[in-house]
C-alpha cells in the first residue's frame, strides 16, 4: 500500500500542532499591519521584516554578524561551561576541592554577571575578550551548580553496589557516577544556553562593533525598525535551535530514563 509510505494525517497534525500558534500570530500581525491598525513605523509587518532579512542576506551583512555572534557564543560557552563542568566534577568527587572553592564560587554567583559590564569595558575595552569573559562567566554557574548537584545526588546505594562488585574508582565514575549525574547536567546545559544568548546580546548591544546585537543597535540609530525586529526574531529562532539540539542529545543519552523517552 503506497499510503503507508506517507505519515498518517494524525501524525502530521501532531507534528504541525506546535507551529499553529506562531503561524496564527504571524498572519494576524501581517493583517493588522496591512490594514493600518498598527503603525508600521513602530512595528513593521512580517513581510517587511522578511524583506529586510532578504536584503541583508544578499549583502552578506546578516551572515557576517550571525557568524560573529555564533562564534562568540560558542567559544564563551566552551570556556565557561568547560571550567564549570570540571570544577563541578572536582567538587562533587573531592571533599578537599569542595571545601577550598565552593564558598568562593557561591559568593561570586550572587553577583549578577551583567553588572560587571562597566568593569569589563574598563578592563578589555570593547574587544572580543569582553564578550568571551561575560559569556563564560554567565555560563559557568548553571553548569557548575548542576554538575555538582548531579554528582551529589547519585544514589549512594548504587555507588555502594559498584564498590561491592569490585569496580575501580575510574570504573565507578564512568559506569555509575557520571551516568547518574547526567540528567542534572543536562538541566544545567539548558539553563546555560539561555544565559549564553542573553549575555551575548546584552554585551553586543552595549559595546561591540559587530554581531547581531550591534546590528540591532545600528538599525535603531537609523530608525530601521524592520532590522530591529529581524534581529529579535533571529534570537527566538536561535533559542529554538539550541533547545532542539539539547533535546536530541538528551534523548540519545538518557534513553534509559522513562522521563526522556520519546513517545
Amino acid at each position: 500500500m503506497p499510503a503507508l509510505a506517507l505519515p498518517s494525517p494524525e501524525a502530521a497534525a501532531r507534528r504541525l500542532a506546535p507551529w499553529l500558534l506562531p503561524a496564527v500570530i504571524l498572519v494576524g500581525w501581517q493583517i493588522a499591519g496591512s490594514a493600518g491598525l498598527v503603525s508600521t513605523r513602530l512595528m513593521p509587518a512580517p513581510l517587511d521584516v522578511a524583506a529586510a532579512g532578504w536584503r541583508m542576506a544578499e549583502t552578506g551583512e546578516l551572515w557576517t554578524n550571525l557568524g560573529v555572534s555564533f562564534l562568540r557564543a560558542a567559544s564563551g560557552f566552551l570556556i565557561g561551561g568547560g571550567i564549570g563542568f570540571a570544577l563541578g566534577l572536582a567538587n562533587g568527587l573531592s571533599r578537599l576541592s569542595d571545601r577550598l572553592t565552593d564558598t568562593t564560587v557561591q559568593m561570586i554567583r550572587n553577583i549578577p554577571h551583567l553588572s560587571l559590564i562597566p568593569l569589563v569595558i574598563l578592563w578589555f575595552g570593547i574587544g572580543e575578550e569582553a564578550k568571551l569573559f561575560l559569556v563564560a562567566l554567565g555560563v559557568f554557574f548553571p553548569i557548575y551548580a548542576n554538575t555538582l548537584h548531579g554528582i551529589r545526588s547519585v544514589d549512594p546505594q548504587l555507588v555502594e553496589m559498584g564498590r561491592i562488585y569490585g569496580m575501580s574508582r575510574p570504573e565507578l565514575f564512568w559506569r555509575v557516577v557520571l551516568p547518574g549525574a547526567l540528567p542534572s547536567i543536562f538541566v544545567g546545559l539548558r539553563y546555560a544556553l539561555g544565559i549564553m544568548w542573553l549575555t551575548l546580546i546584552v554585551a553586543e548591544t552595549i559595546s561591540a562593533s559587530s554581531g547581531l546585537g550591534y546590528m540591532a543597535m545600528q538599525a535603531r540609530e537609523f530608525m530601521l525598525v524592520d532590522v530591529v525586529v529581524l534581529a529579535i526574531l533571529i534570537y527566538a529562532l536561535l533559542g529554538k535551535v539550541a533547545d532542539l539540539l539539547t533535546r536530541r542529545l538528551e534523548r540519545a543519552c538518557l534513553a534509559w530514563n522513562p522521563a526522556y523517552r520519546s513517545a
Partner: peptide, 15 residues
C-alpha cells in the same frame, strides 16, 4: 567471590 543482594535491586538504570 562474596556477593550480597539487598532489599532494593540496585540495578544501574542506564545499563
Amino acid at each position: 567471590p562474596r556477593r550480597i543482594m539487598f532489599q532494593e535491586p540496585r540495578l544501574l538504570p542506564w545499563a
